[in-house]
Design a binder for these strands. Sequence first.
DNA 1: GTCTATACCCGGATAGAC
DNA 2: GTCTATCCGGGTATAGAC
Lengths: 221, 221
Amino acid sequence: MDTSLTDRDTDAGLRIRSAAVLLFARQGYAATSIRDLARAVNLTNAGIYHHVSSKEALLADLMRAGHRGLIDATARLLDGVQQPSDRLALLIASLTAIHARSPLTTRVMDGELRSLTPGSTAHDEIIALRDEYEDHWRRALADGAGQGVFRVADQKLSRLALMSMCTGTSEWYRPDGDSSLEQVCAEFVAIGLAAVRAPARPTASADLSLLPDFPWEPPDA
Amino acid sequence: MDTSLTDRDTDAGLRIRSAAVLLFARQGYAATSIRDLARAVNLTNAGIYHHVSSKEALLADLMRAGHRGLIDATARLLDGVQQPSDRLALLIASLTAIHARSPLTTRVMDGELRSLTPGSTAHDEIIALRDEYEDHWRRALADGAGQGVFRVADQKLSRLALMSMCTGTSEWYRPDGDSSLEQVCAEFVAIGLAAVRAPARPTASADLSLLPDFPWEPPDA
DNA sequence: GTCTATACCCGGATAGAC
DNA sequence: GTCTATCCGGGTATAGAC
């Protein structure tokens, strides 16, 4: 009997989730049909529904488990680490590594929040989990700024810049590529630490009037 | 008469594109129907097809025009600028600024390539345009490394890290937020220049075995 | 240039046999 | 636990009147 919406721990449940995360990451959730999924695991579309209560519940479950794994691992990693620089280094390395090692799951986690119906409990839950994770970053940056080790103009800005750098890894990293995962993490940690130690000095700025104005870009949204 | 697949310059053409870029950015291309689009511009679904040859042609046209605008603006900005550091600073500032100022168009440009049917001429054309743009970055980094001004372990790695930082702006920047566009650009330029000047030194690395292994993440893809 | 009507297909999900 | 068969809504796109 299913106590959760998807039977997470059975063989069939795992095979369905593997196929789902692959298809959702490649084509997007909206472009993936239950029939696509069924074909990938050699079932009929009706067969899927014995393991999954709905397509959206499957997505929510993947995202929930992904975020929980990330949050728990981060808490374990940071446990006992005191220096803000060390904490930030760990945050950068671990977020980068998880995006490199699990690019499909993280792409779904990062990009498919919009596919959960707004206002649903699942939607709100994922937002809360994401916020809980980001709090690790907020605290590290606030501590470092409070102790005077970090000199950043805007903590939010620095956080978002560094997190984008880390999460982008899922889009390009290949295990058989030019650089090893350890090299990537080391390089990104170096960039991150340099970023919070070298404040922006006013430099010659670009002439933004040369940028294109797309006439169809809506002004408000 | 239409010479292109979508009548780019008429009033109706513009209003359709505005609505399309908004919906594609918010919900994704696959989750947006021609009927959604028609409702947004007060037409019936059949009415849309007088201005647009197909949903996919509309997406391709938005992406093509977006990339052309970015490439042309970048060429104008870099024109005559010699120093690799200055070129890199301009690349960072302009890519950041266009993502901040046109978040909807850029989100479609960056995220909907997978929605163009693989192998189609439109798909290949966008890939070629993206590559043409990235060449600006590759040349700047190669020049800087060649002249010894940049000390980077891996040019590709640095480029991807910095580009992710810049493009991420479209996901969070708000004109009425804490930092002005000029501040964001200045900060990102500072981070980028620091990144190519301070090579990674081996530091205490994170214990990656503490990271979660998602049992459903497919190994190969 | 926009409409109504419609063709045709595929979507998520369920019923009930085995 | 998986199947066949089916419901029903909505998808892209077209035909042809106005």
